[in-house]
Design a binder for these strands. Structure first.
Length: 245
DNA sequence: CGTCCAGGTCTAC
DNA sequence: GGTAGACCTGGACGC
């Protein structure tokens, strides 16, 4: 993938038929969340001293081609170091020649594979249970992409019902679904917030209140506030940002 | 070599 | 509804 004259161009070494081309296009649209219209958010933060810089086009969080993949990867981020997350997801891709495995593949992998090869510990059964439900058609995670069909509370309820997905996981997946209200609160974001906001301590409820003014985009505003230092200065040259909310 | 804990969640009170 | 305790793994740290 590369940018050509302001357009995203995807090129494959193999010849692709129309069907393959359409599915690749769908994956890219989903990955870059090209269907999301962030203009209401940009309008809201245009004069914002904390995250006004983001109105130049930030906030399009990279997602996986499928919701299933995002859910499984999110489980691989819980209660472990980032290096373990990388190790586990890499192991998963070894089941599908480097690509993320379809639910059917993960449903068919034996328990011993999860334990001895992926070394996912107690997460293995969670992943397999979800994969089996999707493969058998009892669970349709991709439908959560439909903004019209479900409200935030609905989606959150469905995500929390999944084994291995709690408040953190649900908020994380919802960001990737383009539902930006929930704040991702975990052992990385909490201290990072306290450091940036120069607060000795801040309860979750206090943090939520601090970002409540961003309404449906509170979670995205929180994330941008925390990750501003991931961007080059060039992109965030507006030094008005810097205080605490 | 033992303890702690990292981008939490589940179960049992 | 809120809260201890357990939970796989492996890297960091103290002794």
């Amino acid at each position: 993938m590369r940018e050509v004259n302001g357009k995203l161009v995807a090129q494959s070494a193999a010849l692709m038929g129309p069907g393959k081309r359409d599915s690749l296009r769908a994956s890219i649209v989903r990955m870059f969340r090209l269907g999301d219209d962030l203009s209401p958010f940009y309008a809201r933060i245009a004069e914002d001293e904390l995250i006004g810089w983001a109105a130049r086009g930030a906030g399009r969080i990279l997602a996986s081609p499928s919701v299933f993949e995002d859910v499984i990867k999110t489980i691989c981020t819980t209660n472990c170091a980032w290096s373990a997350t990388v190790r586990m997801t890499r192991a998963l891709t070894e089941l599908a020649e480097g690509a993320f495995p379809e639910p059917e593949i993960l449903a068919a992998a034996p328990d011993s594979w999860y334990r001895d090869n992926a070394r996912m510990g107690y997460r293995g059964p969670y992943v397999k249970t979800i994969a089996r439900a999707v493969a058998q058609g009892r669970l349709d995670l991709e439908s959560l992409l439909d903004a019209q069909q479900y409200g935030d509370d609905d989606v959150e309820r469905q995500l929390l019902a999944l084994p291995g997905i709690g408040p953190y996981g649900a908020a994380h997946v919802m960001q990737l679904l383009g539902r930006h209200r929930r704040l991702i609160l975990d052992s990385w974001t909490r201290p990072k917030y306290r450091r940036l906001a120069r607060k000795r301590q801040a309860a979750d409820s206090t943090i939520r209140r601090a970002f409540a003014r961003y309404g449906a985009y509170a979670g995205l505003a929180f994330w941008l506030y925390l990750t501003r230092d991931w961007l080059d200065d060039e992109l965030t040259f507006d030094k008005r940002a810097g205080g605490c909310p």
